[in-house]
């Protein structure tokens, strides 16, 4: 088996007296779809930002694709894709311009940019919208576009922070098709979500409560060990003990 692509050991982030992420330890293997669950304010986004090199941990260790989260944040950034909770492509650029801009920043060649953007637009079925401003797209399409942009440079790992928030069920389904597609190509998916049906799509999931990881296993094993029939119940069992809320 290969070395895990994400490896953390007691990773902690404090904001003053508040411990947003408390001694998180886990590993994620290559090609895995890893679900990162937790109630609002449980510390999912904080943990993810540390793994992406956007935020320096307060203590603990972590390596992403073999790079250290303290010292090698820029190398990490070359190897990951990231899609934030808040839509963050440029609304005043067209779809094509956004694709070309981010591709260019990641250092794709002109030829790669051309073929990649054509491929991507075909895949998303956005031929008619390619030259429209992103601001005019419906949310579901925006989310699919940001995911595609996040994996444009063929990263080893892609981090998705609540990618399907506020999106209709049909589009969510399509979104997960994109995720499976990427995972089949060997991309490791690290995804946070609130939707328990989505949790079922993951290979393994971790559930965070009050900054700590309270459970980590495959959905089937978790259901078995809690003796319940659905992920909803597992989540409820764990999350109702939470003291923090947002």
């Amino acid at each position: 088996m290969n070395e895990p692509v994400i490896k953390t050991n007691k990773l902690t982030k404090r904001f003053g007296g508040f411990i947003a992420a408390d001694e998180i330890t886990f590993t994620v293997d290559q090609g895995e779809i890893f679900g990162f669950l937790g109630a609002n304010g449980a510390g999912k986004t904080t943990a993810m930002r540390m793994l992406c090199g956007l935020s320096i941990p307060s203590s603990g260790q972590a390596t992403i694709a073999g790079f250290d989260v303290y010292k090698q944040t820029e190398q990490i950034k070359k190897n990951i894709g990231y899609m934030s909770q808040k839509f963050s492509l440029y609304e005043d650029l067209t779809i094509l311009e956004n694709i070309r801009f981010f591709g260019g920043i990641y250092g794709l060649s002109d030829r790669q940019l051309k073929t990649k953007s054509e491929e991507l637009i075909d895949k998303l079925g956005l031929q008619n919208e390619a030259k429209k401003l992103v601001a005019s797209l419906p949310l579901g399409w925006k989310q699919k576009l940001s995911f595609s942009v996040a994996i444009l440079h063929e990263p080893k790992i892609v981090f998705l922070d609540e990618p399907t928030g506020g999106v209709d069920p049909v589009t969510r389904r399509q979104f997960w098709d994109l995720i499976y597609n990427a995972a089949d190509n060997g991309v490791t998916i690290f995804v946070t979500t609130h939707y328990m049906d989505e949790a079922e799509y993951c290979n393994r999931i971790s559930i965070m409560v009050d900054g700590k990881i309270k459970a980590l296993d495959s959905p089937a094993n978790l259901k078995a060990s809690f003796g319940v029939g659905s992920m909803d119940e597992v989540f409820y069992e764990l999350a109702r003990g939470a003291k923090r809320s947002d």
Partner: peptide
């Protein structure tokens, strides 16, 4: 707007 986050996560 939040776009800086997408920039900051690039190399």
């Amino acid at each position: 707007v939040g776009t800086i986050e997408q920039i900051n996560v690039t190399p």
